[in-house]
Design a protein around this nucleic acid. Structure first.
Lengths: 143, 143
DNA sequence: TTGCTCCTCACGTCACGTGAGGTGGC
DNA sequence: TTGCTCCTCACGTCACGTGAGGTGGC
């Protein structure tokens, strides 16, 4: 039984049950500026569960939206586990109250960490400037 | 043949060839605020090569100084490979000219990366503040 | 038959943490 | 004999990158 993606796309256009375009891993990856490997990895971690056409992954617009959310979380520096916890609350609660509440907690903690990082980074930059100065003096002296 | 560290320490005090105190992995680790595992790992990567008393590692003050240099590099965000490259130049050149020159290059590149990181970090903090605002509004609205 | 895409292992990367299982000296 | 320290594997962590080897549809 061979079920090509083309076949799926056609069936899809025909029955009207699930609307919108469909994508393969590579297509979706290219669109979102990531690698197919990363998408497969996220699936392995349970972050997204695309349908299958035989063995080939088929992504809907819903999947696409979810991937964008995942990427947003990553950009903000959250771990895949954090993102996974957050996303799994979406299906649980109708009002999304728990989800929004978790989001606030996560964001607060992340901000605290980033403030610390910012301080460290400034300190490090200062030290590097000093080292550079000393090294340059030494090079000038030796010549 | 059993060669205890105590034995080594005594011999050491006696012949005068190599001066200064000696340390075991755990002692050195405690002194420098790191884990013995980390030290063993660095040895595995060729960053330090302590002597051995049988199978037990024996660290000299020279080794200790080298470990402090390694830790300094780490604090400044350099990879172990970078640090290794830098340290290996010490034995090569008498004038240390190549070493200091490499240091300047490394520091410059690191500073460039940190400037970028600093910008990203500010952007991220801004986005997080916005998300937090929206989420809090939503929570207030729902109640 | 050739190309192109998709798939599943599975090892490699980076800097260690964390047991497991065993040895030596007081 | 009990404790304490030291040692060597070797798997686990985190987020993928990178082949290897194979399949399906035009």
């Amino acid at each position: 039984v061979s079920i090509s993606l083309a076949t799926v796309r056609n069936v899809q256009g025909g029955n009207g049950m699930t609307a919108g375009p469909l994508y393969t891993v590579t297509e979706l990856a290219k669109q979102l500026g990531m690698t197919p490997r990363a998408i497969r990895f996220y699936e392995d971690k349970g972050l997204i569960t695309p349908q299958r056409a035989g063995t080939t992954r088929v992504f809907s617009t819903r999947d696409r939206a979810r991937m964008i959310l995942i990427l947003r979380g990553k950009r903000l520096g959250f771990s895949l586990r954090d993102i996974s916890d957050y996303l799994s609350l979406y299906d649980a609660d109708r009002t999304q109250r728990a989800q929004v509440s978790l989001l606030v907690d996560m964001v607060n903690e992340r901000m605290r960490m980033l403030e610390v990082q910012l301080g460290d980074l400034q300190t490090t930059l200062g030290e590097l400037r000093e080292i550079k100065k000393l090294a340059n003096e030494r090079l000038a002296q030796a010549s």
